[in-house]
């Protein structure tokens, strides 16, 4: 009995010491503990994602031979079409390189892509961030642009060795320079978050006063290369309303983000070529 009491007291004391250590430990120590915990936890984020991929693979392999043969045929068709596109791209790229060399121009290619699977997305921060399955070991750094087939995903906010956290374009903490497709006047975009899991919105401000947009005739908002983080012309969303700001020079309004943002599975991190060369 006495021993039990002593153990309870000891446990409490250990807990109190741990809390005190957390509270009074220097910031550097706390940061390193935090990072170590993140790295330790990274496989836990990655494993469910890997398992999900494996599960999908098994569920597909359980299909009938006939289905598999048909799917194989479709895939072969798609593959050949893509191979053709890849060849075309390669040919165009080599032509561009040749022209750049002849005309003594700087390289046109500013970004390389690093494809990464989304491995974690918390319900509590659905429109704030996602975790992807690639990190600093894959050349990813904080601030890099992240895109997907439907447009902008966001920006790398935190990098671990094997995983990275992406600040989503819909997050209130996400802001970037943009412009309306077809012109080059800069507009500032910022995420607005959302309570719904289906769709999210953003807002634009500093939009030129002569622009107008409505839900029925929206304006395509695309990235601007001015700040150097994103390449030119990637879709952010559609401006669905614009109203004059009090200064009379600018308008501000709402941006409808693409629906695909709610179901991200795979994204591409844009790694600046200049950084690769430096590394």
């Amino acid at each position: 009995m006495r021993w039990r009491k002593l153990t309870a007291v000891r446990n409490l004391a250990v807990f109190a010491v741990a809390v005190a250590a957390c509270l009074f430990a220097p910031t550097a120590v706390r940061n390193s503990v935090n990072r170590a915990f993140e790295e330790f936890r990274a496989p836990l984020d990655a494993i469910p994602s890997q398992l999900s991929d494996l599960e999908k693979f098994w569920s597909l392999s359980a299909k009938s031979k006939r289905d598999l043969i048909e799917a194989g045929r479709d895939l072969a068709r798609l593959n050949s079409a893509y191979e053709l596109k890849v060849l075309e791209n390669a040919s165009l790229r080599s032509q561009i390189h040749r022209f750049e060399k002849i005309l003594n121009l700087p390289s046109h290619e500013k970004f390389k892509t690093e494809i990464a699977r989304v491995c974690r997305r918390d319900i509590s921060a659905w429109w704030q961030h996602v975790t992807i399955r690639k990190g600093s070991l894959h050349g990813i750094r904080e601030g890099y642009a992240v895109v997907y087939g439907g447009g902008v995903v966001g920006r790398i906010a935190k990098v671990n060795a094997y995983t990275s956290v992406v600040e989503l374009v819909s997050s209130r903490k996400f802001r970037m320079a943009a412009h309306v497709a077809g012109e080059d006047r800069p507009i500032i975009y910022q995420g607005l978050g959302s309570l719904s899991l289906q769709s999210a919105h953003g807002e634009v401000f500093d939009a030129p006063a002569d622009l107008s947009a409505s839900a029925t005739s929206p304006l395509r908002l695309v990235t601007s290369a001015l700040a150097g983080t994103f390449p030119e012309g990637i879709l952010i969303g559609e401006i669905v309303s614009l109203a004059p700001e009090p200064d009379g020079i600018f308008k501000s309004g709402r941006v409808r983000l693409p629906k695909g943002l709610a179901s991200l599975r795979e994204v591409a991190v844009l790694i600046p070529v200049a950084d690769i060369k430096t590394d």
């Binding site: 601030g143 970037m176 320079a177 800069p186 001015l226 700040a227 150097g228």
Partner: peptide, 14 residues
Amino acid sequence: AREHAILAERIPVD
């Protein structure tokens, strides 16, 4: 315009 764009992107919102 470029400096504005860079700061808008790289300075944290808060």
